[in-house]
Structures are given as C-alpha cells and as structure tokens.
Amino acid sequence: MSDTINAPAGGSESGTAGKALTGHTGAGTAPETRGRTTIADNVVEKIAGMATREVPGIHSLGSGMARTLGAVTDKVPGGRPSMSRGVKVEVGERQAAVDLDVVVEYGVAIVDVAGDVRTSVITSVERMTGLEVVEVNITVDDVHLADEEDGGEGEGRVQ
C-alpha cells in the first residue's frame, strides 16, 4: 500500500508532511515538465541564418537593400555582421515558419542548394529548439559572380 497522495497541481493538503505528492509540480514530477520555455523570434532567426550560411553554394543572405546596408554596417569598427539578415521567422508555441532571402554562387544548381538549405535549417532549428519547422520558404534574390567585388575595395581597371 502506498502513501502517495494525489494533490492538485501546485497545491498540497495539510498533514501530508513526509509523504510524496504527485501532480504537475513539485518533487514528484520530471524536471523537464516544470515551468515554461519561451524561444524568442530572434533566436530562431540566428539559428536559421547560421544553418543557411553553412550550406555550400550560398554566398550571402538578404535582399539587395539589406545587403547594401549590411555591408556598410559590417565595415564600421566594432560592428559585427548580422546573423539574422535575410531571415524572417514566425514562432508559435510548438511550431516555426522560416522565410529566407539568399544569394547563391554562380554555377550551382539552385534547386539542389535550396533543398540543402531546407534540410540544414529544419535540422538545426528542430534540434536546438524543439520546435517543429512547418515550412522554409526561400527567395533567391541574386547570383554572385566570381568577378563581382563584394566590398568595392578591390583593384579597379585603372591604377
């Protein structure tokens, strides 16, 4: 015969000292079920941005204007590149949706790179956050050519 008393969550009954209480809180519950975890949108944006940048064939993230402004702020002393540039997310309690603006390298198969990006983003976000990624929408904004200059500081035609 057990001395366990079923008490309502967060409550206890008087005169139960020394007896185990079961419910949704307290010493008798698993630690992972005590409390609530909230994951901010910018956390998911950074994870998705890093996962996208790791895929071969991705040159950069962001649409034209975002890349231009980002290139300027990246060059400011003490400035750091934004890991969430070109990434937008919607985060719910159990699910997330991701929208990406990317620039691919010239010569890569865009369909293959997009598939690799989806796999990388879904795997990383789900593993790190526990959220189910319901969709990853990718917009290819540009193709980077090898002879294009990224920062405008390369050699010109005339010296």
Rank of each mutant, 00 (worst) to 15 (best):
V133C: 03
T22S: 13
R157S: 12
T37F: 04
L69T: 07
A97N: 08
A48E: 01
D99G: 12
V102F: 07
G28K: 02
I5V: 15
I110T: 09
V72N: 12
P31W: 05
V102L: 06
G57P: 04
I58G: 01
A27N: 05
I138R: 02
T4V: 15
A114F: 04
E132C: 07
A96Y: 02
T68D: 15
E32N: 14
T37G: 08
G28P: 03
S12N: 15
P81N: 09
A7D: 12
V117A: 03
E135D: 13
S84L: 04
R80C: 03
I138W: 06
G23A: 12
Q159P: 02
G35F: 00
E93L: 12
V43N: 01
Q95C: 07
V133I: 07
T4L: 15
E148T: 05
I5D: 14
G28H: 03
D74T: 02
G130T: 03
L145P: 02
G64L: 13
M83I: 10
T68E: 13
G26R: 01
A17W: 08
D3H: 14
S124C: 05
D147Q: 04
L100A: 10
V111H: 12
T22H: 08
M65H: 09
V91I: 04
S14L: 11
V104P: 02
G18K: 09
T129Q: 06
V133D: 00
N6P: 14
E149L: 11
T129A: 13
S120L: 00
G57T: 05
V104W: 01
G18I: 04
G28S: 08
E148N: 11
E155Y: 02
T33W: 05
L131C: 08
A109V: 15
R80F: 05
L69E: 13
S82E: 12
H59V: 09
E105N: 07
V44A: 03
G15I: 06
K19N: 13
G11E: 14
T68Q: 13
A51Q: 00
A48W: 00
H24R: 14
A97H: 05
E13P: 09
E13A: 10
P81K: 10
T119A: 11
S120F: 00
P81D: 11
H144V: 02
E153P: 01
A9P: 11
A66R: 08
R157W: 09
M83G: 13
Q95D: 15
G64V: 14
D74Q: 12
S12W: 12
M83D: 14
L131S: 10
S63L: 14
S2K: 11
T29K: 06
Q159F: 06
E54A: 04
E93W: 12
L69V: 07
G154I: 00
D142E: 14
A114H: 04
